[in-house]
Design a binder for these strands. Structure first.
Lengths: 236, 236
DNA sequence: CGAGCATTTGACACGTTTCAATCTCTGTGG
DNA sequence: CCACAGAGATTGAAACGTGTCAAATGCTCG
């Protein structure tokens, strides 16, 4: 098994790296935890421990609620993604969309482990740099693309992110997001998302329905959105 | 002198940390460089070395050019900010707005140095986590706030970021951004930015003119934008 | 079978963009 | 020292994309 991403590395940590055979839990102070769908993991107002979540399976969402009921979702972490909200700094909420299985690492423990393992350190830094690139891409989306292009780009991004872990099928992937959640990610109204999805369908570009996304015409979607998956790369 | 931020730490690195008195350049493979105003430091299409920039003085901008001439600026780094575009991953351009003085560190050198100095490692990780929080905030801005609130929030953010280094005056700060650049940051049109700035002026909230921003009514601006500077915190 | 949530559709309002023109400033060369 | 050039700022009018409000439909689960 390769260990070129942060998730892969910590999953095999005790076996391949630590000759003393300590468990992941012991080395990193990590715990494996499951959160039920729709549960709040870390609220934007109640700062808890300084912990890092590494998503193992399921979908989460990281968002900010604003006065007036609006919500902006920063990202929807899936397998391999990390979520780190420093308690003094965080003003976002992290919650589970589906049942979510995550590795939870106390930040001080991770910092200790990184002192002794430079590869762990490198991979963690790259992982958060990648999350940064994803946020930046979402900013480009919200700032400078219209509804059609925005949705298309995000659907392609999701496909790429899921396919890294084989979580896609031939021409699509499972996606538990509601149209409302999609709207909160893209900075649109759920009504307008609905209309735009219908346009995507009509034009034979993509389909978004009952938990499943079908990419019908990838070539056209890619050129429409100028999609370049480079920003999602992890290894190297 | 404190050394609680990445910049402060590496500036005093050779003095306080390395008993062998090696210079910063030797330890980190770092070089101090000055870029003239309006010069491109790192283009989104030409991937150069894997380097990290730490801004010492001046203003930069990190942006993405899209087909059709639109541009989305991710951030305008100032003193203390770091810019890291991994060559395999980057699709943003980094350029200097004013004359820009930066410390340039080869990523492999930094990684080596971090292996030997856990504080360096911790501070770097926090620095990029902070950049991440800034991107997220800009995403909230572009996705869910109207022009008036967007501009106001960003002006408050800039004040806070500059004041960390004493780069503000009593009720304002120097700001070299043009209205067009402001538009690219906020995902607006320069024309609409102009109109909105004029509204801000009329309402006695803030002033944006010839290189200087004046915060006229901070209280009202803060409540209007629900500004909470926590995400800009660095130390801890 | 009914309740509640997600999706869909329609008509209209509004914020922002687009296009076009004018104005102001600042630095430069005659 | 003035004239000019070019970039930035300002203003107006109209077009357009997205939001808002309201209502109906479809789906899922107890």
């Amino acid at each position: 098994m390769t260990d070129n991403t942060f998730l892969q590395f910590i999953e095999t940590y005790s076996v391949t790296r630590d000759h003393r055979k300590k468990s992941l839990r012991q080395l990193l102070g990590a715990s494996f935890r499951e959160y039920p769908a729709n549960s709040v993991i870390n609220h934007q107002r109640e700062s808890g421990d300084d912990v890092i979540y590494v998503i193992n399976s399921g979908w989460g969402k990281l968002y900010r609620d604003l006065h007036g009921g609006d919500r902006q979702t920063i990202d929807t972490p899936v397998r391999g993604d990390i979520v780190w909200q420093r308690p003094e700094t965080a003003n976002t909420t992290f919650s589970a969309i589906t049942d979510l299985y995550a590795i939870e690492i106390q930040t001080p423990s991770l910092e200790q482990a990184m002192e002794q393992d430079s590869k762990l350190s490198r991979l963690f830094i790259r992982a958060i740099a990648r999350q940064n690139a994803i946020s930046a891409e979402h900013l480009v989306n919200a700032g400078r693309r219209n509804a059609m292009t925005r949705i298309s780009h995000f659907l392609l991004e999701l496909e790429e992110r899921l396919s890294v872990h084989g979580l896609n099928t031939d021409g699509g992937y499972e996606c538990p997001l509601t149209q409302h959640e999609l709207a909160d990610i893209l900075g649109l109204t759920k009504i307008h998302v609905n209309r735009t999805l219908s346009a995507l369908r009509t034009n034979g570009l993509a389909t978004f329905k009952s938990g499943f996304v079908e990419i019908l015409d990838r070539k056209r979607l890619v050129s429409l959105t100028d999609f370049d998956k480079a920003y999602l790369r992890q290894r190297g």
